[in-house]
Design a protein around this nucleic acid. Structure first.
Length: 254
DNA sequence: CGTGTTTGACCCGCGC
DNA sequence: GCGCGGGTCAAACACG
């Protein structure tokens, strides 16, 4: 099944079966740990958008991308569930690449700058926590996300995004989230995000990797950076990270 | 009244 | 073919 996590533990590391582009971060404002060590036993997850494996060192974090490499247009996502049965014979339902985010938070549904409408909730097998299904409320935006709580670590929320937003972050937000005020193009958003990253100082934003296999660690991000989830594609990650960061190993003091 | 949530039913893919 | 589980629909409901 298209379960949540594709991978398996191997010699103390979680080996993902699929390609991955993922951010891992925690949200102190919602009860996140003060240090990465508090977030996961070993929070440094290596992510390799171009590679085939995704590893999380340690024994508590295991999350990745699903169905990557099978990217498809959102063609039938909006009308995939018509009452009239299967459409084309043999036409498999194809999905957008999915990007999993791991957040240590007490709240399930985290603000990310977009507006979401919940359209379903299901019990998860082998987990006491249900999985919620959200859809972007913007018209013609195919993005969906699933939110579930890790049964291994109930303090951890797994948010899986599917698809790309076809619009900018809305300006009006629920719940008084800490977000950038004006409507932002993705590039601008990313730039401002990076500005905030660079201003973090004592908080940590650890970026590692090479030009061919970058790794990104984000920890202790303020709530205002939750919208980093707006940029989940590798292109946007590149956009997000200045060349100086993207092509070298830069580590903000943790 | 508009928007969002809840929830049971239904659809679909997959493994046996 | 059947059952299971994930994913979605849509009516009812809640709320500002």
């Amino acid at each position: 099944m298209a379960g949540g996590v594709h991978g398996e533990w191997e010699n103390g590391q979680f080996m993902f079966h699929d390609e991955l582009s993922a951010l891992i971060y925690q949200n102190p404002a919602h009860g996140g740990a003060a240090s990465p060590e508090q977030c996961f036993s070993s929070p440094l997850a290596r992510f390799s958008p171009f590679g085939s494996n995704y590893r999380v060192s340690g024994d508590s974090a295991a999350f990745g991308v699903e169905n990557a490499g099978e990217a498809d247009q959102e063609s039938d996502m909006s009308n995939s569930k018509k009452p009239n049965k299967a459409k084309e014979k043999g036409a498999k339902r194809q999905r957008e690449p999915r990007y999993a985010f791991v957040t240590q938070s007490e709240v399930d549904h985290l603000e990310d700058g977009y507006r979401w409408r919940k359209y379903g909730q299901k019990a998860v097998k082998n987990s006491p926590f249900p999985r919620s299904y959200y859809r972007c409320t913007s018209q013609k935006c195919p993005v969906k996300k699933r939110v579930e709580r890790s049964h291994q670590d109930p303090t951890v929320v797994i948010t899986t995004y599917e698809g790309k937003h076809t619009h900018h972050c809305p300006t009006t937000l629920r719940g008084g989230a800490h977000l950038f005020a004006p409507p932002l193009a993705p590039a601008t958003t990313s730039f401002l995000a990076m500005q905030q990253l660079s201003q973090l100082g004592s908080t940590s934003a650890l970026l590692q990797g090479t030009s061919t296999s970058p790794s990104l660690y984000l920890a202790n991000l303020p709530p205002s950076l939750q919208h980093l989830q707006c940029s989940t594609d590798y292109d946007l990650l590149q956009d997000l990270l200045p060349n100086s960061l993207f092509h070298g190993n830069i580590q903000h003091d943790m």
